[in-house]
Design a protein around this nucleic acid. Structure first.
Lengths: 146, 146
DNA sequence: ATCATATAGTTGTTTATGCAACTATACAAA
DNA sequence: TTTGTATAGTTGCATAAACAACTATATGAT
């Protein structure tokens, strides 16, 4: 049992994820400055499609840790922006497969460069050892709760 | 300069804050199960008012790391729920001071108990040493970007 | 083959965020 | 006093999340 290790204020900060909010805002700002016209949430979908194109919405739910309505609407907006398109699956007619358009594919290198750069800004002055432990803790939290 | 310490997938997870999303969802679920009818975002405002009542909206912006429109609307909703009330400042007529109602004050013990319990669920199996380092890293990220 | 159940995705509603534009008040310099 | 500027807060708009209710298709048991 863990007790009282969080002083007031620290509990708040840990629960509300001020650090990840700060990263998201900076990433959005850096996208904008680089002329990349997507939201962070849309980026999170594209990120997984760049790794593997043609995933179903359900797969994208699991990959991005979002629910089905969220993915429906993110895909709606990505389709409006002509970055992806829905293709009905031939094996399972309930299922949509999401494919990147040419434009969606073209976005990858610039966007990933900005994401990597943003993370470097975020982690300025943090040692590799500290980062490893932070990653472990965040993974354990995620596994405890997901 | 920090390079390549994030393998694919880990970068995504770090940037998108899956751990803090998981904490927020669990906290919301625990509030609901305890019959506490507020959102996490409303909790984040109440949390700071419990520490110091009668703060201005501007102070709440800084405390909660939210912008002014967000606080305007969170206070709107907290007022609708009769948990706080706006009082025009006598010193500065531009400024609203936000005070807890009796009902808002009554909510504190139960709500903080749930928040602490949720954090314990999240950190099950994580050592105090790991937690200290994770807190340091998150604080450094926040300071680098805020 | 039929029926119950599970799975994939959509839609509606409420709450919240981010950004820009706006009003009102305060304050400081001329 | 007037004028310019900064600060506190609000409003409008687009995007997104959480939850419940819904449709359509698939699958497994009988």
């Amino acid at each position: 049992m863990i007790n009282n290790q969080f002083k007031k204020g620290e509990l708040y900060s840990f629960i509300t994820g001020k650090a990840s909010t700060a990263i998201a805002r900076r990433l959005q700002k850096n996208f904008k400055e680089a002329g990349i016209e997507i939201t962070i949430e849309q980026w999170s979908v594209l990120y997984h499609l760049w790794k593997e194109d043609g995933q179903s919405q359900q797969q994208l739910c699991e990959a991005t840790f979002r629910d089905k309505p969220s993915i429906t609407r993110l895909v709606d907006n990505l389709e409006k922006s002509k970055l992806v398109k829905r293709v009905a699956s031939k094996n399972d007619r309930r299922s949509n497969l999401i494919f990147l358009t040419k434009e969606g594919k073209n976005l990858e290198p610039k966007t990933m460069e900005v994401a990597n750069r943003t993370l470097n800004e975020a982690l300025e002055g943090v040692t590799n050892g500290q980062i490893e432990i932070a990653k472990e803790v965040l993974q354990m939290v995620y596994d405890n709760l997901k």
